[in-house]
């Protein structure tokens, strides 16, 4: 097991490198002039050329790529933003926690609402309960998030004066953003829970459990849910990843200075260093989350745990 974890952790390094190279190459092809962005349109061509030289922008591609990779991965010197001159490492360290809290709370709401919805739908398959729950879930994915966000703010902040409309501070500042962002998650989780529960409910060991006289509630939670959990965990994991990158909209609306707004502003201003480092960090965090998801699989299903352990011992050929 430990070997498996270490292998996965080591694997993150080439992933990070790969992301770095890809994003760097992509952004290099951006048809924009960094000097013009920094100096503004009021600067002369001479001024811009001076700046370009000093920033090393006229060096050949591989030189710049090499410099970037050594700076980032060996010296951990993320440099400064081209546009704001803020230290990138500081910005990320400040902003990452906020995005994280937001993502986790959004995910928490999705899980707490989505899974029960899916269970109720599965139990009442074909009846009103099923239809109501799935209708609710489907309505969720159909409504654009930013729109729901503004509606929530108008209702809870302006009319009811219960929650703050924007900004950062205590936990209450994350409630509305989390509710606004959770609709997608609720829908996916409800759907996935419903379909895995349906598969499981029909299986033999459930019938056996019922025949043995186990309480229905226990049948559903202890036996059915536990076995249905694997695909659900997959959805939770991938959803977390999507949330991480997709928080930009919610952050913009609620004026939360997180990773999302950092990267959006950077992309819009072609602030290459920030986009590059930001992408790498997000990729690493995402890989880490997928590792945790895979470890959760092992915790839930001993067969999978055995599979991981055997993976380290001998290679299983495909086919």
């Amino acid at each position: 097991m430990i070997r498996y974890i270490i292998r996965r952790l080591l694997w993150m390094i080439p992933v990070a490198l790969g992301v770095a190279v890809i994003v760097f190459t992509l952004m290099t092809f951006c048809p924009s002039d960094a000097a013009e962005i920094i100096l503004g349109s009021n600067a002369t061509e001479e001024d811009k050329e001076i700046l370009r030289d000093s920033m090393g922008l006229n060096d050949p591609f591989f030189v710049r790529l090499g410099d970037f990779l050594t700076d980032t991965f060996i010296r951990f010197d993320f440099g400064k933003s081209w546009v704001t001159k803020a230290d990138i490492k500081t910005s990320i360290l400040e902003r990452m926690p906020r995005t994280f809290v937001l993502t986790v709370s959004t995910l928490a709401i999705s899980v707490l609402v989505g899974i029960p919805l899916g269970i109720i739908a599965a139990i009442n398959q074909g009846k009103l309960g099923d239809n109501m729950c799935m209708a609710f879930a489907l309505a969720g994915i159909s409504i654009p998030n930013f729109w729901l966000a503004l509606l929530l703010v108008i209702l809870f902040s302006v009319k009811l004066k219960l929650l703050p409309p924007m900004g950062i501070g205590g936990l209450e500042y994350y409630i509305l953003p989390a509710i606004a962002g959770c609709t997608n998650g609720i829908a996916s989780l409800a759907r996935q829970t419903r379909s895995s529960m349906l598969e499981v409910i029909r299986s033999d060991y459930i019938t056996t459990a019922r025949a043995k006289g186990v309480k229905e509630f226990d049948v559903i939670t202890k036996h059915a849910l536990k076995n249905a959990l694997i695909p659900i965990i997959t959805v939770v994991g991938t959803h977390f990843g999507r949330l991480l990158g997709g928080m930009m909209i919610i952050e913009t609306i609620f004026s939360i200075p997180g990773m999302g707004t950092l990267i959006i502003t950077a992309v819009n201003t072609r602030d290459l260093p920030v986009v590059q480092v930001g992408s790498i960090i997000l990729a690493i965090v995402f890989s880490f989350c997928m590792l945790i998801v895979d470890l959760l699989y092992a915790a839930v299903d001993p067969r999978i745990k055995a599979q991981y352990e055997s993976m380290g011992k001998r290679r299983v050929k495909h086919g």
Partner: peptide, 24 residues
Amino acid sequence: MRFLDIIQSLPGLLLSIVLSAVLG
């Protein structure tokens, strides 16, 4: 497969945004 892993480790929206910025 590793290449696909790398692409998938970037949150989807982010990748589209970067590409969109590059392509215009």
